[in-house]
């Protein structure tokens, strides 16, 4: 089932195309012949029960995991990411489900983790610059933390999630992968993150959103991709499906 055949005619290739992705862990099949395309300015939701393989998709795109077989294409060109530094270099950012923050380090160092700013001939860390920029950023995104110098360990779960989202949205240039970004958030914080996702969409970024909240999925997404036990059950246009249909696709009951 070549995915290219299904693709509607577009002047531009999709930002990201996954073709026939398989992933096994030892004997466990986490993902089977998975195909998906995401266009610029599009929000695609990925839904499915626990253990369906959603996070595996995210980690494969990011270069954290390598597919057992299958292809990735970025802007139409075949690509393999040896590790996450390579996907980041291509403008891809991820909010991991387990957040991937260094707990013992301050917020601002996490914000710049892997791309720390340096100054002067000795290439010293520009702590002041990073602190100022992080402060501006969390303010702009209304992430309420005691201080950008606070260690991540001393933040609440929701505050950590806010930091991880702020980091991803700050550095993303092409594609943002969000693995349950609002799982730990309160009502107001969730609304802010949803507004944030809409503004990423307006900036013409592609977004892959994983969420267990179907209300949220229907509010934000253009298309919905359903996974069940590693198998892609189907992809629907959000405005041409219903809550009931998605639920029965997720559960396999009609």
């Amino acid at each position: 089932m070549p995915a290219a055949a299904q693709r509607p005619e577009h002047s531009q290739p999709p930002v990201l195309a996954l073709e026939g992705i398989h992933k096994t862990f030892g004997g466990v099949v986490a993902l089977q012949s998975f195909d998906l395309e995401i266009e610029a300015g599009e929000v695609v939701a990925l839904v499915g029960d626990n253990g369906a393989g959603k996070s595996t998709v995210v980690k494969i795109i990011a270069g954290m995991l390598h597919p057992t077989s299958g292809r990735l294409r970025l802007d139409g060109a075949d690509i393999t990411f040896a590790d996450p530094s390579e996907s980041q270099a291509r403008g891809i950012q991820v909010v991991y489900q387990d957040l991937a923050l260094a707990d013992g380090q301050p917020v601002y160092m996490n914000m710049f983790l892997g791309r720390e700013r340096v100054i002067g001939p000795l290439r010293r860390l520009d702590r002041r610059g990073m602190i100022a920029e992080t402060a501006e950023l969390v303010q702009a995104l209304d992430v309420r933390i005691p201080s950008v110098r606070a260690r991540v360990r001393d933040l609440s779960g929701g505050q950590r999630q806010g930091v991880a989202i702020a980091r991803a949205t700050h550095w993303a240039r092409k594609l943002v992968l969000m693995d349950e970004p609002t799982a730990a958030l309160g009502v107001a914080e969730t609304a802010r993150v949803e507004a944030n996702i809409r503004s990423l969409k307006e900036r013409n970024l592609a977004i892959l959103l994983i969420s267990h909240s179907l209300d949220q999925v229907f509010r934000l997404s253009d298309r919905i991709c359903v996974l069940r036990r590693g198998v892609q059950v189907g992809v629907r246009r959000t405005n041409a499906t219903s809550n009931n249909e998605i639920v029965s696709m997720i559960t396999g009951l009609s």
Partner: peptide
């Protein structure tokens, strides 16, 4: 240890190697 990117990456790797890797640290 305190003032260079290498030092920052040493801290991050020892703190949470997965997070460091996810952040692009080798």
């Amino acid at each position: 240890f305190r003032e260079t990117r290498f030092g920052a990456h040493v801290h991050a790797t020892g703190d949470n190697a997965g997070a460091a890797r996810a952040g692009g640290v080798k």
